Simulated assay, not measured.
Amino acid sequence: MNSSAESGRHRRNVRGDDGPWLERMVMSTPAAQWSVFSLVWMLGMSGLSMAFAYDDLALNQRAEIVPAQVIRTNYDQRGKSFNAELRAPYQGVRVIVEDLHRLPATGDVVRLAVDPHKPTRVRQSEAPRWRWMDFGFIVLVPVGLVVVWGRASRKLRRKPPGSVA
């Protein structure tokens, strides 16, 4: 007859690759070999993506459409953008618009979605709301947490009995 330590959901063996089925599955993937640096990088990029997602969410929920005059265009740079000056009710506020739908010329009047709580948070009213990279990095947060849990759980189980920290 098998003991509960040899069968069931938790297996024990000499190599130390025992444990719950989820941990065994996670640790059998290439993600288990990710370095600590890559997990920290993934967490940082996910945080940045969530910050951009928050900006998009804020603009989706409370944006006002405001006319603005283009002061300067920055189309020769890697990330195309333009500087604009908002009109009423935010007269004189200067912003940099990076989420572009079309490329206006200097002096054109464009319609911008402006967050009334933070008037410098803007985008062209016709610009796309989400970028695919935002979704990609946000999804990596739970994946990274499961990998960290799997690695920590396996490391704790491999400690010899009676050892301290």
Rank of each mutant, 00 (worst) to 15 (best):
residue 4 S to W: 11
residue 5 A to G: 03
residue 8 G to P: 01
residue 9 R to L: 14
residue 10 H to P: 04
residue 13 N to I: 05
residue 19 G to M: 08
residue 21 W to V: 10
residue 27 M to Q: 06
residue 29 T to E: 09
residue 30 P to N: 06
residue 34 W to V: 02
residue 36 V to P: 00
residue 37 F to Y: 10
residue 39 L to Q: 07
residue 39 L to W: 00
residue 40 V to K: 01
residue 46 S to L: 07
residue 51 A to T: 09
residue 51 A to N: 12
residue 51 A to S: 10
residue 60 N to R: 15
residue 61 Q to I: 07
residue 65 I to K: 06
residue 69 Q to L: 06
residue 71 I to G: 07
residue 72 R to G: 05
residue 72 R to Y: 10
residue 80 K to E: 15
residue 80 K to T: 10
residue 81 S to E: 08
residue 85 E to I: 10
residue 86 L to S: 00
residue 92 G to D: 03
residue 94 R to V: 04
residue 96 I to F: 05
residue 96 I to A: 09
residue 97 V to K: 01
residue 98 E to I: 03
residue 98 E to H: 01
residue 100 L to K: 02
residue 103 L to D: 08
residue 106 T to R: 13
residue 110 V to F: 07
residue 110 V to H: 02
residue 111 R to F: 01
residue 115 D to Y: 04
residue 115 D to S: 01
residue 119 P to F: 01
residue 122 V to E: 03
residue 125 S to K: 03
residue 126 E to S: 12
residue 127 A to R: 03
residue 133 M to N: 09
residue 133 M to R: 12
residue 136 G to H: 07
residue 137 F to V: 04
residue 140 L to C: 08
residue 140 L to I: 09
residue 141 V to I: 14
residue 145 L to Q: 08
residue 147 V to Q: 00
residue 149 W to A: 07
residue 150 G to M: 06
residue 153 S to T: 13
residue 155 K to Q: 14
residue 156 L to S: 13
residue 163 S to A: 15
